[in-house]
Every structure is written in structure tokens, then in C-alpha cells.
């Protein structure tokens, strides 16, 4: 299956060298059906620190399964206001 991956802030350097997605910090990636967020994190080699993950704009935990055609966005801990 194909999904869109978005990595922001300090995670941007971990974007794979694949087809660009809809935005500057996004790529299209191919994954086996049933892949979880945690498996993507491991595959990308993201640093071992807390993360905030979204599938199609909804906050998810890392055991969440990704469906084909969806968008996975991962942020390092950020805040402001």
C-alpha cells in the first residue's frame, strides 16, 4: 500500500528519498498492508524520544495500524502558544 508520510521540525532529515508528497516536508512511501505507526518509526530510524503522531489528522498511538491512502504525520515534542 502507498501512504503519504510527513515529518516535521527536527525529524525532517529522516524523510526518505522517495516521491514527493503534497507538501514540502512529505514523501509518498510504500508499506506492507497492516503496517503500524511504530513499525514506520523503526524503519525510518527516528530518534528514541517522545513523538506526536497523526493519521489523517487524528492523534494516534504507535500501535495504530495505517490504512492505504492515508497520511501519517510525525512530530517531535513541540509546543508554543
Amino acid at each position: 500500500m502507498r501512504i503519504e508520510l510527513a515529518l516535521f521540525a527536527s525529524l525532517e532529515p529522516y524523510l526518505p528519498d522517495s516521491e514527493p508528497g503534497s507538501g514540502r516536508r512529505t514523501r509518498m512511501i510504500d508499506l506492507p498492508d497492516g503496517t503500524t505507526v511504530g513499525e514506520v518509526v523503526a524503519r525510518l530510524g527516528l530518534p528514541d524520544q517522545p513523538r506526536v503522531c497523526f493519521i489523517d489528522g487524528r492523534g494516534v498511538k504507535e500501535d495504530a495500524t495505517i490504512a492505504g491512502g492515508s497520511r501519517l504525520a510525525i512530530f517531535p515534542p513541540v509546543a508554543g502558544g
Partner: peptide, 25 residues
């Protein structure tokens, strides 16, 4: 030591929120 006050905010400033709040809709 906290990742937000020790890394995220000093590196990107408060406007680092734009992408995550946009992502959340």
C-alpha cells in the same frame, strides 16, 4: 531537559505550532 522547553521552543520558536495545529485540523 524537557524536549519542548530544551529543544523544540529554542530551535523553532513558538511558530513551530503551525504545522501540528494544521495537521490536527
Amino acid at each position: 531537559e524537557h524536549p519542548v522547553t530544551g529543544q523544540g521552543l529554542p530551535t523553532y520558536g513558538t511558530n513551530v505550532l503551525a504545522n501540528i495545529i494544521n495537521e490536527a485540523g
